[in-house]
Simulated scan of single mutants.
Amino acid sequence: MTESAEMSKEGVMSFLRSRREQLSPEQVGLPSFGRRRTPGLRREELAALAGMSVEYLERLELGRDTNPSHAVLAALAEALRLSDGEKRHLAMLVMKRHSAGLFPAPRPVSDETRPTVRTLLNQLDPTPACVFGPICNVVAWNSAWETMVRPLGFLDEDSPNLIRYHFLNPMARRIFTESNWAARADEMIGLLPAARPDWGGAEEFRALIDDVNVAPDFTSRWVAYPVVDTRPCGATLSHPVIGIMNIITEVLLVGEAGQRLEMWLLVDERTAAAIKASATPRPPRRPIEGSAPG
């Protein structure tokens, strides 16, 4: 079994258990009697809802049955009240578990993005934009984005990472409102389960999890096995130079190695004018190994 297939197997097991444990009896129309030793539905309750035996569900959750039929998966998805994004994630885990040979070998986590994507970054100025990889390492950005984030201390590290910054840098708590900080945290951690089958065994992936596991807000979210759809979302930032900013982030899948292009759309005319006035057109920046971005 390939490492990717093994990761997908573990992902199916962990995902099914996490969703059962997060679903209360009341959410599925079942009575709840007294306190429960463990949170969520009992196996026998989920098995009854999905029309299968408790023994078979146990084999699935423990990884002893690794070839569930489409009908079984559809029944579980319905019983667990999975969202569309969660259904797609489960389907992808199963596909990679059984058809790993059909998927191309994953590129390195911090692989460079295509020259054409870097050109697109440059042409997006004065819209701030960056490209980040599957574990949120930022691999390229344009001058407008640098103007925005350098005063925030984000580019102080040699290899900027959105998740490390968000959970470990106190500045992140100061620039976002509490609700925006939480929404951003959920969004970023929700990208990691999709990366885990391909990059979960990579040293950079493990190092990231080890680093941010010291933050309780990360640990609680990580244990919950979040899966989110990346959609445009609004945020209010308190920028130390520009002041209050209202933005909408749009994220598009680009390049190789699970890379995404994130654009900060400035919905406030005053903010947009300030960014345009302060930005000096330069080629897109990339971290240089062994030195801090200048």
Rank of each mutant, 00 (worst) to 15 (best):
V228L: 10
R35Y: 00
R260E: 08
A277I: 05
S14F: 04
F132R: 12
E10S: 12
V241D: 14
M52D: 12
V138G: 02
R282S: 10
E58D: 09
V227S: 01
R36M: 10
P31C: 03
A194T: 11
R17I: 09
D210W: 02
R150D: 11
E187F: 02
T177M: 01
R164K: 15
G29N: 13
S179G: 04
T230E: 06
S143E: 05
A183Y: 07
S18D: 06
P216L: 04
D156A: 14
T219D: 11
N122G: 14
F176T: 11
S220F: 00
A235W: 07
D211L: 09
I242F: 14
F132C: 15
P281Q: 06
W264R: 10
G190Q: 04
D125W: 00
T280A: 11
A79V: 07
L41H: 04
T280K: 10
P287K: 00
F218P: 12
V139Y: 08
A77G: 10
L49M: 07
L208C: 10
N137C: 09
I244Q: 14
I242Y: 10
L265V: 13
L30N: 08
V212P: 09
M13R: 15
T66W: 02
V28T: 07
R184Y: 08
A77W: 01
A235I: 11
V54M: 12
L152Y: 02
A279T: 15
P170D: 01
G34P: 07
R17E: 05
I163W: 05
V12M: 15
L124R: 01
F176N: 15
P240M: 03
E269V: 13
G190K: 00
A5T: 04
E21I: 02
E6A: 15
L90R: 02
D186L: 03
V149H: 05
T177E: 15
P126H: 06
G34D: 02
S143M: 02
A48C: 10
Q259L: 04
G34N: 02
